[in-house]
Amino acid sequence: MIERNIAKAISELMLVYPVIALTGPRQSGKTTLLKSMFKDYRYISLENPDNRFFAEQDPNGFLELYNQKVIFDEVQRVPSLFSYIQTLVDESKTMGQFILSGSQNFSLMKNITQSLAGRVALFKLFPFDFEELNSHNLLTPDYSSMLVRGCYPALYDRPMPTTPFYANYIETYVERDLSELLNIKDIRLFRTFLKLCAGRIGQQLNLTNLANETGISIPTVKSWLSILESSYITYQLPPFFNNFNKRLVKSTKLYFYDTGLACYLLGIKSEKSIQESEFKGALFENMVINEYIKQNYHHGLYREFYYWRDSNGHEVDLLVSNETTYDVVEIKATKTILPKLFDGLDLLKNIGKETINRKILVYGGTESQNRSNYKIWAWNSIKIDF
């Protein structure tokens, strides 16, 4: 079994918090991780109708039976439990008393903020990061196969073709979450919306354009995007507009948490298709930013991420906060290092001056270099400084 980097951070904070909450995409390995880490804890899934009925109808009796060293999976399915758990942990003052897990972030976080604020340490587990895959020699030398396959653990646990996996993922998880939170009458329309989102990876989000192409209203676009984000399908990267320049854009950029799912939605099914696709650069950029996000959460680093662009179209793909300074990262799918690849980094260095820490180029090749003014990283060697 591949060890997950997040285990260390969880182990540390469960000593000082009575409740640990782990969320993240469905099929990212949450249940496997918790069962392997906490073998002396009882595991109760609230997806199970019998368990859920017991918890809903008799919460006091339920928590009298399961009152300590318990993992409650998909706990958001019984919202009433959170207030009872609050009372128990306030009375017992036992650290690591409950571990809560859920895949629907909107519902989980709503109940946590209402009942367990200050009592819970929050963690997010994403599909495998590169370090985890590399520890078992599962990181391929060419990025094309990684883009298509994605990083969901099930695809590495056993031989499984990607197309049926992602087709089933959409149908069994995404659409189920959607139907529970929204009353959508036309699933086909939503699938069209998903595909249109995939075609906008790395682009500034234009809600009006997306609404017109899908044939829905702007409020519906906002609602559907919110559900995709709460289900860990997509996320939005905000622009940086602190003091670098007064003429900066304010639109977010859209990305998917897993490029394998995005490739499936775009009809890309092979490495050859990636190389011929107009989306190759955007998907590569998406994969690299995903790796930064995964390392950030898996190691408990609490960094913030932005992109930078001014009104003249000058852009840097990623800014990574590091206390009072920033790493600026340019991301290019090319395997050849050319002088023009550094233009954006140099521009931002001149504007930002002392606020810029490192200038990093992440590219599609396999050789990393340390130059006088730049760090050049192969795509599979990304590592945030801890």
Rank of each mutant, 00 (worst) to 15 (best):
L318W: 14
I289C: 12
D258F: 07
Y326K: 09
F240K: 06
K246Y: 09
E304M: 15
T252Y: 10
R247K: 06
F342Q: 02
L347Q: 07
E278R: 12
L347R: 09
I293W: 11
D310L: 03
P339R: 04
R247Q: 07
L248H: 02
P339L: 03
L301R: 05
V288D: 06
L248C: 07
P238I: 05
K335E: 15
I331T: 11
T252K: 13
F305Q: 11
N290M: 13
W308V: 00
E315S: 09
V320W: 02
N286M: 08
D317Y: 08
N322V: 04
N322Q: 10
Y307I: 03
A262W: 08
W308Q: 01
Y257E: 04
V288A: 13
E271C: 10
Y255Q: 05
T252A: 09
L348I: 06
P238N: 06
H314I: 06
I268E: 04
D317Q: 10
E330M: 01
F305M: 14
K335I: 11
D327G: 13
A333P: 12
H299Y: 15
K250A: 06
L348R: 00
S273P: 03
D327N: 15
K250L: 05
Y326E: 08
L348C: 01
N245E: 14
S273C: 02
Y297P: 10
L347Y: 10
I274A: 00
R303A: 11
T324I: 15
F241Q: 06
E323S: 10
Y302K: 15
K246L: 12
A333V: 12
P339Y: 04
L345H: 02
L254Y: 00
E304I: 14
K294A: 04
E330L: 00
R309Y: 02
A282H: 07
Y326H: 11
K340R: 01
K253I: 00
V288N: 09
G267T: 08
Y255L: 07
I331D: 07
G344W: 02
N245R: 14
K253L: 00
V316P: 12
A282V: 03
F240G: 03
G344E: 00
I268S: 07
D346L: 03
L237N: 04
S270R: 10
G344Y: 01
L348H: 00
L248M: 08
T325E: 14
P238E: 04
A333C: 13
D343Y: 04
V288Q: 12
L266D: 06
P239Y: 09
L265A: 06
D346W: 00
L341V: 00
D346G: 00
K349G: 09
G260D: 03
L248T: 07
D317I: 07
D310M: 03
Y302C: 14
R247P: 02
N245I: 12
V288L: 12
N245Q: 14
K335D: 13
E315Q: 14
K269M: 10
H298D: 13
V249N: 08
V249L: 09
Y257L: 07
R309E: 02
V320Q: 01
N286H: 05
G281R: 07
